[in-house]
């Protein structure tokens, strides 16, 4: 079924800003929404067309558009990316994906090769669970524990993600978005997304990636450990590996300047 461009842009809460001939699209990872790209994205506004969006079930997306079957694999999320790209007429654009979005972007670039000429993967992992001859960093038991954790936070998350979150006086640039929502996630959808994310295995897709690819690896990232980043680098044909000084899994928030500079240098 063909969805109209307008419907797609509304469904995924797409925001287009900036001015430039090239388009750079930022995609959030598991657990957050487009606001996590805000600090990095704003540094591209003056010379790029900047696209931000939320996956269905996250942030300001249309919760009613959630379809458990469509989103039962990363391919469904990648289809959303391709639909957004088509709605905006993207060609040879840059896709920046955080965490699970790195693989979603890779799948999207395979589905629509003309759409993205450059991929930036921030903390990518093609498979989280260890396998024979492969270390993803997680055991199956740990993933089950994570899913249980999300269930336990069913009550907590709803409250924590509620729109009533107060503004933050010492970061006024975030004020306006804060009023509305922050990383608001529907708890049921968050659980589905966690399952899809942490049980995914996209190792087979890496070798087919045609786009120029930059891998941004964080220091001491428990979600996407160093050797996973190196594995991605070794398997994506035209790829550059770059180790960030930033620690943890969200350098776009903890070290936005470093991430922005690395992306700029690459494109």
């Amino acid at each position: 079924m063909e969805v109209s461009a307008e419907a797609v842009l509304r469904r995924n809460n797409v925001h287009v800003s900036g001015s430039g001939t090239r388009t750079i699209m930022f995609a959030h990872g598991f657990g957050c929404d487009q606001s996590m790209w805000e600090p990095v994205a704003r540094t591209f506004d003056h010379d790029f067309r900047v696209v931000l969006f939320d996956y269905v079930g996250h942030g300001g997306s249309d919760l009613n558009a959630y379809d458990a079957e469509r989103y039962s694999s990363l391919t469904g999320y990648a289809r959303d990316v391709v639909e957004i790209g088509r709605a905006l007429g993207l060609r040879s654009a840059i896709f920046v994906g955080h965490s699970v979005s790195a693989m979603i972007g890779a799948i999207a670039s395979l589905e629509a090769p003309e759409m993205f000429s450059d991929l930036v993967m921030v903390g990518p992992s093609p498979r989280y669970i260890d396998d024979e001859g492969y270390r993803g960093g997680f055991s199956r038991d740990q993933i089950d524990e994570l899913l249980q954790f999300l269930a336990d936070n069913h009550l907590g998350w709803s409250a924590a993600m509620a729109p009533a979150i107060m503004g933050n006086p010492d970061r006024p640039e975030l004020g306006e978005r804060l009023e509305n929502s922050f990383c608001r996630t529907d708890p049921e959808i968050a659980r589905d997304f966690a399952r899809v994310t942490f049980l995914s295995d996209n190792r087979g897709d890496l070798a087919a990636i045609q786009a120029r690819t930059l891998i941004l690896q964080c220091s001491s990232d428990i979600i996407a450990p160093m050797e996973v980043g190196e594995y991605v680098h070794a398997n994506v044909p035209d790829s550059v590996f770059r180790l960030l000084r930033a620690t943890g899994h969200c350098p776009n928030l903890s070290a936005p300047e470093e991430v922005a500079a690395a992306i700029r240098e690459f494109v």
């Binding site: 990872g29 598991f30 657990g31 957050c32 606001s35 996590m36 965490s99 740990q142 524990e145 994570l146 249980q148 954790f149 999300l150 336990d152 936070n153 009550l155 907590g156 998350w157 409250a159 924590a160 979150i165 107060m166 933050n168 010492d170 970061r171 975030l174 804060l178 922050f182 990383c183 990232d221 428990i222 979600i223 943890g248 899994h249 969200c250 928030l253 903890s254």
Partner: peptide
Amino acid sequence: AFGGRIAVETHLAPLLRMQGHVHEIA
């Protein structure tokens, strides 16, 4: 515990960076 580690990385840390505080997380 493991679930909490992932939650700290994927939820808590980003939220803390953005809004400065997070309440009532299990």
